[in-house]
Design a protein around this nucleic acid. Structure first.
Length: 418
RNA sequence: CGGGGAGUGGCUCAGUUUGGCUUAGAGCGCUUGGUUUGGGACCAAGAGGUCGUGGGUUCAAGUCCCACCUCCCCGACCA
């Protein structure tokens, strides 16, 4: 992509409203815009990042044996009455009535819908287990939206649901999802803690949360330095580690994932049964597994930035390489930049070429801001000696490379996943 | 919902205390021309504003009064 034709509205200053680092940077880097409180628009760069996270999730979920589907956003309220959650979730549900007078809501989550679906199509133990997931926009009328994408009223979530014939099967799937989650978050380039958590309105017994330590985190996790014990803060008591009795450390965190062993809460309420080998009716045992996909973008930035801007982890970056001709008016410089661009694109790299007119300073600042990990600086002075710079965003390291070896050097770096 | 703050061009803000030299300003950004080009350049000329909304007071309101709306921060909720 050529920057001069791209819609990347970067800003020098963030709006005063933005508080969290990730919110400021997402805004300044031209990735998101707020439409109204808690409601955001993804600009092209933001959407590219969202897409990359989604494809990591798809790869790991599929590898773990889950199948993707897409449920509806609009849900009949009737369905929610069957589990009683129409009242439990009344405050956050966005409800409306259509012209026929049907009572509907915009899905805040999908346990009811998926259970209804599975109930109608799974009748035999032979069809179990099955794990289904979707990546979809959820709607919650949050009491207090804040910190940009971290807590929004409209957000992208990956939600998966497992259906098993017995507890043992559930545990197996739970384990598989647990592992998939670890893979996903590692590939996203974030450090995270896993806590045993309260199941809340979801119900069920066992549940774990995936927490990302960050300044603008809304949750506090208690962490034991000595034995790595982790737990969510439930009461405001002085607590010591139950394992080794050392004082626990408080960490502010963002919850990016939550997995639950639901058991039969939904399948019972909605009558999702199957026949076993003996022809006996049994209740399906469920688990559910959520990832805050859009929130993950913020969490990643919270952990990957410096005073100049975002530093994307390789797998998340909207582009692999930024080609930066320092003097856009110099034909030799520009021609070489275009040559690198087309050669790299041909080799399958995602490349952004900053072909805009303007001074070097502007381009360097914008480059740092949008945080693409690899950058090629082509300047006329170095070019006189046949050299071009390859600079690494994270390490702030600049290597002078022979101008004929730039493309192969970049491809090497990409292969290494450095 | 309770407590605290704020709404003035796309972004950051000044002006509101004490109404009138404000035909509403500045910086950044934007347009045109020129000079520049390794870390957010310079000169010149431009475009862009219902001062959140409605009502009121007054000869006169961005500025005073009333009501409402919106946004942000602190608490309950959650991916």
């Amino acid at each position: 992509m050529f920057w001069s034709k791209a819609f990347i509205p970067t800003l020098k200053e963030a709006p005063q409203d933005a508080e969290a680092i990730s919110h400021k940077l997402l805004f300044r880097a031209g990735m998101i815009r707020m439409l109204t409180s808690g409601v955001y628009i993804y600009l092209p760069l933001g959407l590219m990042v969202l897409d990359r996270i989604e494809s990591i999730i798809r790869e790991e979920m599929n590898a773990a044996g889950a199948q993707e589907l897409l449920l509806s956003c609009i849900q009949p309220l009737e369905l929610w009455k069957k589990t009683g959650r129409d009242e439990q979730l009344a405050d956050i549900m966005i409800r409306f009535e259509d012209r026929r007078g049907r009572n509907l809501c915009l899905g805040p989550t999908h346990e009811e819908v998926i259970t209804e679906l599975v109930k109608n199509h799974v009748n035999s133990y032979r069809q179990l287990p099955v794990v289904l997931y979707q990546i979809q926009t959820k709607f919650r009328d949050e009491i207090r939206p804040r910190f940009g994408l971290i807590r929004a009223c409209e957000f992208v979530m990956k939600d998966a649901y497992s259906f098993d014939r017995d507890q043992k099967g559930l545990e197996k799937n739970y384990e598989a999802m647990f592992t998939a989650y670890k893979n996903i978050f590692m590939r996203c380039g974030i450090k995270f803690l896993i806590t045993e958590a309260d199941s809340g309105v979801m119900g069920g017994s066992v549940s774990h949360e995936f927490m990302v330590p960050a300044q603008s985190g809304e949750d506090i996790v208690l962490f034991c330095k000595k034995c790595n014990f982790v737990k969510t803060l439930t009461e405001d008591k002085q607590e010591n580690c139950p394992r080794c009795n050392t004082a626990l450390e408080k960490k502010q965190t963002i919850e990016v994932g939550h997995v639950f062993q639901l058991g039969t809460k939904y399948s019972k309420a909605l009558g999702a049964n199957f026949l076993d080998e003996k022809g006996q009716q049994q209740t399906i045992i469920m688990g559910c597994y959520g990832i805050g996909v859009s929130r993950l973008i913020s969490a990643i930035i919270e952990q990957n930035n410096d005073e100049d801007g975002i530093i994307w982890p390789r797998e998340i970056s909207p582009f692999d390489v930024l080609v930066l001709p320092v003097q856009s008016s110099n034909k030799e410089v520009m021609d070489l930049a275009k040559k690198y661009y087309s050669e790299l694109v041909k080799k399958g790299a995602k490349v952004l070429l900053d072909d805009r007119e303007g001074t070097a300073g502007v381009k360097f600042k914008d480059a740092d801001l949008i945080g693409i990990p690899l950058r090629i600086n082509i300047g006329e002075k170095n070019l006189q000696n046949g050299k071009v710079e390859i600079s690494l965003r994270r390490e702030k390291k600049i290597n002078l490379v022979d101008k004929n070896k730039v493309v192969s050097e970049i491809m090497n770096l990409l292969k290494k996943g450095a």
